[in-house]
């Protein structure tokens, strides 16, 4: 009896970790898909971080003012798309350096969110705490309690599948959406072509700039959702620098996934899992090791990415024309 209870408890602990993984991975997944769109089109997108931060603020601020999480989400998407267009203006139309432009957006977002936040809400850069009505609420699936009481399988349904807010599902759908767009549609074909060999697309009579702008707009939409998730679904309000490098982790996950939706999804889940494990193990004594090496676990995503980029875990093939502004030859 005692034994059985222990196993069941361990199983529950595991499922809770998986549940946390999904919640932590959601913004990463949305951001990584956004990164795939930008980077497949040949635009380096380190501005994922800034776009997410800015839209997190916009979502929380508008949700506070209108008491509507949906209005917040729409605004967040709008703001993120605008930043994407700014990135496009600098790097497509004006042929500037894409890394510098992305960096500028990140710095801009970091400063602007706090400045506007203080001006609007006078809470040191935070937005007021959102009530339940102003947030995306967990969706309890039907019969969660009844099915949840079934042994072993039940908790999977109750803890892992049920009880997520809509944006978690949107993030998972975004992976399918991205894969579908890339491989099955005309836009996807052109998107992949423009990141590999823009002159081929140009000579085929398709505008390179238009295709890249479109890619940045789609990326903006996905990034905006990631931001809104952070402040109005996962959290309950905006906190300064609340993205805390998630944009960069998403970028790393995308590279780790070799610019492919499925690979990026798995990388995001892995990174999310490590983070979930680390927070569960906080202060826990592990047999033989002693206190759990939480910092090491948190650093793993970065180490893995560095190792991948160094070429130890298969070869990552970035789009060939990435980072190069398109200029017709002489």
């Amino acid at each position: 009896m005692q034994e059985e209870g222990g196993v069941a408890d361990l199983w529950l602990q595991f499922l809770l970790t998986i549940d946390a993984t999904l919640r932590v991975a959601t913004p990463l997944i949305l951001c990584a898909m956004a990164g795939i769109f930008s980077e497949k089109s040949g635009i380096i997108d380190i501005s994922l971080e800034g776009k997410m931060l800015m839209s997190a603020f916009a979502a929380a601020a508008v949700a506070t003012l209108t008491s509507s999480a949906l209005a917040g989400l729409v605004t967040a998407i709008g703001v993120s798309v605008l930043l994407g267009l700014l990135h496009g203006l600098a790097s497509i139309t004006l042929r500037g350096n894409q890394v510098i432009s992305g960096l500028a957006i990140n710095i801009l977002a970091s400063g602007l969110t706090v400045t506007i936040g203080i001006a609007m809400f006078k809470q040191g850069g935070q937005t007021p705490n959102l009530s339940r009505a102003e947030r995306f609420r967990p969706i309890e699936l039907p019969f969660a309690e009844q099915i949840g009481n079934l042994p072993l399988i039940g908790p999977i349904y109750r803890e892992v599948i049920s009880g997520h807010n809509i944006l978690v599902w949107v993030a998972l759908a975004a992976v399918l959406f991205t894969a579908f767009i890339l491989t099955r549609t005309r836009f996807g074909l052109r998107l992949r072509a423009v990141g590999e060999k823009p002159e081929a697309l140009d000579s085929a009579g398709v505008s390179v700039a238009k295709t890249r702008y479109l890619a940045l707009i789609v990326a903006g939409v996905l990034c905006g959702m990631a931001g809104a998730y952070l402040s109005t679904a996962h959290g309950s309000g905006f906190v300064r620098e609340m993205t805390a490098g998630k944009g960069y982790i998403a970028l790393a996950a995308m590279i780790f996934g070799k610019w492919q939706p499925r690979g990026a999804l798995l990388a995001c889940l892995l990174f999310g899992f490590l983070e979930a494990v680390a927070s569960r193990l906080q202060g826990v004594d592990v047999p033989l090791i002693g206190e759990a090496p939480v910092d090491l676990i948190l650093a793993l995503p970065y180490l893995l990415t560095v190792i991948l980029l160094a070429g130890f875990v298969g070869k990552a093939m970035p789009p060939r024309a990435i980072g190069e502004p398109y200029v017709k030859e002489r």
């Binding site: 549609t185 074909l189 052109r190 081929a200 085929a204």
Partner: peptide, 13 residues
């Protein structure tokens, strides 16, 4: 894919 590019015809390829 190279031959189609830019002249795919429909939205789905």
């Amino acid at each position: 894919e190279n031959v189609m590019l830019g002249h795919e015809g429909s939205l789905s390829i």
